[in-house]
Design a protein around this nucleic acid. Structure first.
Lengths: 328, 328
DNA sequence: CTGAAAGCGCTAACAT
DNA sequence: ATGTTAGCGCTTTCAG
């Protein structure tokens, strides 16, 4: 059931079958009909691998994610997959399981199997990224940028978001804040820290301390004691997941939110609005991100040109119940 | 930078390069070294498409899911992807966006690009599934079974789980129960209904009514009034997501859980234990599912034999705060 | 408008 | 032990 069978059944050459299957209109109508009849009779569908080899393209793009259990990457994957599907492209996944040394290898492999790669590599060093990027073209970066090679980047402005959250706490009267940090080597954690530097420059009278945290529910949960002891009244947590963990830990210790402590998350995950109390957070338009990632990829595939600016996504602050006026 | 370049640089034939790249030990050590030197000099990596065409395999498996935003399928995808990666296989995604007519087409396409397909098609009719299954071999089914063709199936015993949840409510003294249903055509909803039939047979004195619901947060939320009005004191909800929606809606209406109403979910999603109150639910070992799906797939790929039994996964009941004794 | 033939990059049987 | 050759399934020049 290859092209040859259809050809012999229709009494024509492979070439003609190929032409018909690809909608080449220079084929005689009668012959085309005969070919189509044979094809549907044999339920023939062109072999994509053969096609890929001949055409030099696979109609597939790869996405490298550090961790598929992270809702952010799930949402990007979903947006990307749906957008790509609309244009007849498929998505191949590579989960690096948070092992940054694997990211480069996986990305390279994915690139060889696919027509392009979307890379989410928050832990990779800048140097490695600069070296890797040119070998991956067409490439779309998520939450990273490159200096040497121009590469379309989609970056969420975490610094801006956390500044706004901090300013919100100040507005509520909080003067002692703490940031429960994310993973040390996380690029987006660094961006938040930079944003907080600007914040302290702008509000020199506000005290801001840093508590080591993480990006997991458990990390947040286990920071409860440190947070409770630190004396701050407004807590900026790395992300929603950790914030929920903290929320849970605080609740177990009888510390009320927002009466005793105000708390902010980051990401606006689906369930952030349904925690108790609902989480004040910064909404990241992640499904748009996946969608736009595909558009940037398509541009490169179509025009063969990587010259595309970095897109910054300003988070939208969602004021909910986990923040309130400082205790008198 | 294909195999030919390496061959000419090393002064040997393509065939020898191929042998070296594939670890064929019959190659002279010196020549092998020369080839490897040339390969690394040119940063040569075999083209997977060419390889696939020659070998008739792609080292890729496809997974068809109805909706990537559903935590269940995310977890299966993740488990599958990680397990497959351990054996050097990659995963190609096809999201049917809950359009059941797309499922068959996507599955067929995926199969042509991949060495096998894992199919999650809860909405597809039995007839369509029976027809499709033989064309997809090697195939692993999730939460579906076939009659005509033997196909490895992994099915969560939803009927068993919901029976146990209902029995738990009875034990707490509830005599008026309601089931907030899932999507009509969902196979797993049908299984729950069957389980509930057995339940009513076993507990004829317990009243059980059915309220149309859905599988989304909003569906649960919007059912709040119907649930509040139905007179039941124990509510079995299709899944955790809908249960959280209902929880939220009830809370807005001032109905307390579990004091006024007991509530159960299904799936034990990551955040089920962190709702307010924490959700009593049936835990489905979904990441094991992804893992096992890969093992079943690998068996078929290796032995070329589909004869594998259906695996039933009994859910584990998680008793939490959303269920309590019936109001006196 | 159609067929013959080359070629995409690789593997493997065959021959030396 | 290595090179030559065929072939995986398809597209696409090139002749006719």
């Amino acid at each position: 059931m290859g092209i040859a069978d259809v050809a012999s059944m229709a009494g024509v050459s492979h070439a003609t079958v190929s032409r018909v299957m690809n909608g080449n209109t220079t084929v005689d109508a009668d012959i085309a009909a005969r070919v189509r009849a044979a094809a549907s009779e044999l339920k023939y569908k062109p072999n994509p691998v053969g096609r890929s080899l001949a055409l030099g393209k696979t109609d597939t793009i790869g996405i490298v994610v550090p961790d598929l259990s992270n809702p952010t990457f799930q949402a990007i994957l979903r947006g990307l997959s749906i957008a790509a599907a609309r244009d007849g492209y498929r998505v191949l996944i590579a989960d690096s399981s948070e092992v940054s040394s694997e990211e480069a290898i996986l990305a390279g492999e994915a690139r060889r199997r696919c027509d392009g790669v979307v890379l989410c590599a928050p832990r990779m060093s800048d140097a490695d990224l600069e070296e890797l990027a040119p070998t991956l073209y067409p490439l779309v970066l998520i939450n990273r940028t490159t200096e040497s090679v121009p590469t379309p980047s989609l970056v969420v402005d975490y610094g801006q978001g956390i500044q706004e959250l901090a300013a919100h706490l100040v507005e509520l009267g909080h003067r002692k804040l703490a940031y429960l940090t994310g993973p040390d080597r996380s690029a987006s954690n660094v961006q938040r820290l930079r944003g907080l530097e600007k914040f302290t420059a702008e509000f020199p009278d506000v005290e801001l301390q840093f508590i080591p945290g993480g990006n997991t529910f458990d990390a947040g949960f286990e920071s409860s004691d440190a947070v409770a002891a630190c004396g701050a009244t407004g807590i900026l947590v790395f992300n929603d997941v950790a914030a929920m963990g903290l929320l849970s830990g605080l609740s177990e210790r009888g510390i009320r939110v927002p009466e005793d402590l105000s708390l902010t998350g980051f990401d606006d995950m689906p369930f952030a609005r349904y925690t108790m109390p609902p989480l004040t957070t910064a909404a990241v338009p992640i499904s748009d991100l996946g969608d736009l990632a595909w558009r940037r990829m398509r541009e490169q595939i179509q025009t063969n040109d990587a010259a595309s600016p970095t897109n910054y996504f300003p988070p939208r602050i969602e004021l909910r119940g986990s923040t309130g006026p400082v205790k008198a």
